[in-house]
C-alpha cells in the first residue's frame, strides 16, 4: 500500500491482501447478484474495513433516545398500527422466499406483457410488410413488371440503372430484425414504467440490442427516428423506381444478375 504504485481503476490489482482480485470493476454483473457474494470482496475482513468499522460504529448508544424509540413503538402498538400491510419495500425476506411468493403473480404479469409486446410486434410487422408489399408491386423488377402497361421497351442504357442492389432488396429495405426492434420500441413507449413488462423476453432482447436498460429510451428514439428517415428514403426509392420504370426496362434489370453473359433477345 505505498502511494507510489497505485494505478487507475480497471488495472485490477488490489493492495489489500489481494482478497479482492476477483471482483472486476466493470460493474456489469446484472445476472448474478447474490451468487458470488461470499467472495465478492471481503468487505468485512479487510484491515481497512475493520479499522473503519471500529472507528465509525457508535459505541455508546444513548439511553434517552432508545427510550424515545421504545415509546414510539408502544404508541404504534396501542394504535394497532402493527398488523399493517407489507409493502414491497418492507419485504426483506431472502430472495428465494420472496420469489416463490411472487412467482405466480410475476409469471402471469410476464406472460401478459409478453403477449402484449408480441402482439404489438406482430401488428407492427403486419403494418410494415403491408407497406412493403405495396412497394413491391410497384418497384420490384419482378416477373410481373414486364406486364405493366407503363413499362417501355428495353433501352440499351438501361442495364446499369436499377441495379442489382435496388432490385432484390428493394421491397424489404430493412431486415426484419430492425422491424422487430422498432415494434419493441413502440411497445416500450406504451408500457414504459409499468414494471412487469420488463420481464418479457422481447424486452430483454430490446435491452440487449440497446446495450443496457438505461439506454433503451435513447436507442429507441434513435431507431424510430431512423425508421422515419427510412420510410422517407423508401419513398424516394419508390419515386426513383417509378420514374425509372418509365424509362428503364425491367427486363434490363432482369438481365443484370449475370453481366458477363449478355442475354440475347
Amino acid at each position: 500500500m505505498n502511494s507510489s504504485d497505485w494505478q487507475p481503476w480497471g488495472g485490477g490489482e488490489v493492495e489489500m491482501g489481494g482478497q479482492q482480485g476477483d471482483s472486476t470493476p466493470s460493474g456489469r454483473h446484472f445476472a448474478r447478484p447474490g451468487a458470488d457474494d461470499p467472495q465478492d470482496f471481503r468487505a468485512e475482513s479487510s484491515p481497512v474495513a475493520v479499522l473503519l468499522a471500529a472507528a465509525v460504529r457508535a459505541r455508546d448508544v444513548e439511553g434517552k433516545r432508545e427510550a424515545r424509540a421504545v415509546a414510539a413503538f408502544l404508541e404504534a402498538r396501542e394504535q394497532g398500527a402493527h398488523p399493517a400491510r407489507t409493502r414491497r419495500r418492507d419485504d426483506w425476506r431472502p430472495r428465494g422466499v420472496r420469489r416463490a411468493r411472487r412467482s405466480l403473480r410475476a409469471t402471469l404479469a410476464a406472460l401478459l406483457a409478453g403477449l402484449t409486446l408480441g402482439g404489438v410486434a406482430v401488428a407492427a410487422i403486419g403494418v410494415s410488410s403491408g407497406g412493403d408489399g405495396e412497394g413491391q408491386g410497384r418497384a420490384g423488377p419482378s416477373s410481373s413488371a414486364p406486364e405493366r402497361p407503363g413499362s417501355t421497351p428495353p433501352d440499351s442504357t438501361g442495364s446499369s440503372a436499377p441495379a442489382p442492389g435496388a432490385s432484390p432488396s428493394g421491397p424489404s429495405d430493412r431486415p426484419s430484425q430492425a422491424q422487430d426492434t422498432e415494434a419493441h420500441c413502440r411497445a416500450f413507449e406504451k408500457v414504459e414504467g409499468r414494471g412487469k413488462a420488463m420481464d418479457a423476453t422481447a424486452w430483454q432482447r430490446l435491452i440487449d440490442a440497446a446495450g443496457g436498460e438505461s439506454r433503451v429510451r435513447a436507442y429507441c428514439a434513435e431507431r424510430l427516428g431512423v425508421s422515419g428517415g427510412g420510410s422517407e428514403r423508401q419513398k424516394k426509392d419508390k419515386e426513383r423506381d417509378t420514374a425509372g420504370a418509365s424509362s428503364d426496362p425491367s427486363t434490363a434489370a432482369r438481365t443484370t444478375p449475370r453481366p458477363g453473359q449478355p442475354r440475347k433477345k
Binding site: 460493474g27 447478484p33 447474490g34
Partner: peptide
C-alpha cells in the same frame, strides 16, 4: 442500484481508503 455497481463502489472505496 445494481449489485455490481455497489460492489464496485465499495471495492474502490475501500481501496482508496487503504491508500
Amino acid at each position: 442500484k445494481r449489485p455490481g455497481a455497489v460492489r464496485t463502489a465499495a471495492h474502490r472505496g475501500l481501496k482508496r481508503l487503504a491508500r
